[in-house]
């Protein structure tokens, strides 16, 4: 399993190393300075945080119905990655906001809802770590709740008054902006796939270990 993910890591690493070249060549946005370049490291993890939350919710719902351990492992891995990508978005966002808005953080609907979504998945991880036996079912329910929050996070900028850029920005981007953005997104996505595979493999090995201990005790 370890060897299978190495090409993903190498490719994602190469994309991350070359992305700054494309980002530096991209034009500046009107009314914004160099700080707008943070967008290329902010939007992809933020978008993947939402997609990961939806994936985690769907796989957890499947686990609740079918009770197959593989779905549980995938849900756990996706929840951890939602937190990781959320952390990246939560750090890169304020770094951009400090210059663009003059403050590190505002309790704007998009920011507040993203923070809440992030907290839901932190709760998932805490529940799994300290919840004891049966916590996987409770955590799966929490993941479904987290998934239900995701569309509101995405649409919050269109529903409520906000200073955060709207959802119309990305689909209407000119090619000069869009190419570096989707290039960077590919890198984040490859990392996601590789990390998910690696995390599932850790859980799989742990389950095998538990099974062996049980068998040896019988």
């Amino acid at each position: 399993m370890r060897k299978a993910v190495v090409p993903f890591f190498v490719l994602a690493g190469l994309i991350f190393m070359t992305a700054p070249i494309l980002i530096a060549r991209a034009p500046f946005a009107a009314g914004m300075g160099l700080d707008q370049k943070i967008f290329y490291f902010h939007m992809p993890p933020a978008m993947l945080m939402l997609l990961s939350a939806i994936f985690c919710g769907l796989i957890s719902a499947t686990f609740l119905v079918k009770r197959r351990p593989l779905y549980d492992w995938m849900g756990y891995a996706a929840a951890e990655l939602t937190v990781l990508y959320g952390a990246i978005a939560m750090v890169t966002g304020p770094l951009w906001a400090r210059k663009a808005w003059g403050v590190w953080w505002v309790w704007d609907p998009r920011l507040t809802m993203s923070f809440l979504l992030w907290m839901i998945f932190i709760s998932y991880i805490l529940l799994r770590r300290y919840g004891g036996p049966g916590s996987e079912v409770l955590a799966a329910g929490l993941a479904v709740f987290g998934m239900a929050t995701s569309p509101f996070v995405y649409l919050s900028v269109n529903i409520w008054r906000t200073i955060h850029p709207l959802t119309t920005v990305v689909p209407t981007l000119p090619v000069d902006f869009a190419f570096p953005l989707w290039y960077s997104f590919t890198g984040f996505l490859l990392f996601y796939v590789a990390l998910l595979t690696l995390r599932v493999s850790v859980e799989q090995q742990r389950a095998l270990l538990d099974q062996l201990y049980l068998e040896s005790e019988e």
């Binding site: 991350f16 700054p20 160099l34 700080d35 370049k37 943070i38 490291f41 902010h42 993890p45 990246i88 750090v91 890169t92 770094l95 951009w96 400090r98 210059k99």
Partner: peptide, 10 residues
């Protein structure tokens, strides 16, 4: 700020 964002991702 841009450098800090890139460094944090890594």
């Amino acid at each position: 700020l841009v450098i800090a964002a890139y460094a944090f991702v890594w």
